[in-house]
Amino acid sequence: MTRTTRRGFLALGLVSAAGLALAGSAEPALAAAVTVGGLQFDVPDDLRPAAAGAELGGGTWQWRGVRGTPAGAAGFMVVLARADLDSTDGGEVVGLMLADGLDGHLPGLVVGSRRSRSMPGGGEQLRLDLTYGSAPRTLRGTLLVATREDRPAAVLAVLGDDTLTAGDLATVLDSARWAS
């Protein structure tokens, strides 16, 4: 191997290493932005859009993303979003969301703490922790209801099995904002 050839291979290796380093140092696609009506939020990049189905929520949601499968061993997470509710009151939206429990759709429902805070872009958001189902088959997560003086209101639901982490919840809920 001549010196020129050896230097050529070395240069090629350096370029390849630099390319890989540059690719690795670029901002990782950890979250993808989703817009639903006037609502914007980020979701983990391993969440994929899904079609409506009983196991993934009713058909009135405007956007639905899922990771894993509901009946899978673990790792199930679903994000549901809509921004078309003609309401200005978070309490009214919570009442609507829990109503179908009377028909057995939220067995063993336990509502947790409620937190209110201002919503980026205006108005306020209400977060409500909830759990339903019976062990070992339970779903838990947080309901975010965003309201402002101008209708419509928006709902963002992040639910999953026991593997759902606080980081997963924060990625979605803390990024929620009004885009318009």
């Binding site: 009713g58 679903v78 549901l80 009151d89 009214e92 969301m97 939220l106 189902g133």
Partner: peptide, 19 residues
Amino acid sequence: LTSTVDLREQLLPQVPART
């Protein structure tokens, strides 16, 4: 404010069936 609710309509995901 009064509104109508269809109780049959499932909103949140169904709990996975027990195996």
